[in-house]
Amino acid sequence: MTTSILFSGFGGQGILFSGKAMAKSAMYEGKQVSWLPSYGPEMRGGAANCSVIISDEEIGAPIISNPDVLVAMNLPSYDKFEPTVKADGLMIVDSSLVNKKSERDDIKVCYIPATALASENGIDGMANVIVLGQILKLTGMFDYDTFLSYLLKGIPESKAALIEKNKKALKLGYDF
C-alpha cells in the first residue's frame, strides 16, 4: 500500500511543515517515507509545495505526478494541481483562499475554510494544522491521539506555547 500526498500553497503557510509532520508520523509507525520539497528563490509569499510518499514497500520516484491526496491552500496551487489528482483520490481545499469549486466528479473534494477558522479561533497561522486534522478524519491514516503525540514531539521546549495552539488546531480540523 502506497499513499502519495501533495501539500501545496504559498511560502509561510506551513506547507513544508505539514508534509514533515505527516512523513515523520509515518516513519514512527515503521513505514517507508519520502518528503521532497519544491525549492527555489521564493521565500514567504512564493509558491511552495512538498510531495510526501508513505509506503509499506521501498519508495521509487519521490516525485508525485498524480497524488492520491492533494492539499491546495491557495488559488495558483489549486489551478495547477487540481487536474492531477488521481481518480478516486481526495482533494482538500482551503476555501478561505480558493473561491472555486471543482467540476471533477471522479474525486472526493473537501472544502474547509481553514484560514478563517484559524483566525476566528485566535490561532492565526495554524491553518495547515487544521487541514492535517481534516486529513486524519477523512483518511483514517493515523489514530488521532497517536498523531497528536507525534506532532507535539516535534515542538522544542523553547516554543511550548505552540503546544496548545497545535492541539486546538488539530481538533478544529478533525471536528469540522
Binding site: 517515507v33 519520502s34 521532497l36 520539497p37 525549492y39 519521490p62
Partner: peptide, 10 residues
C-alpha cells in the same frame, strides 16, 4: 543532485 540534497527520508 539537488533532489537528493533537499529531500528527507529516514
Amino acid at each position: 543532485d539537488g533532489a537528493l540534497g533537499q529531500m528527507m527520508e529516514p
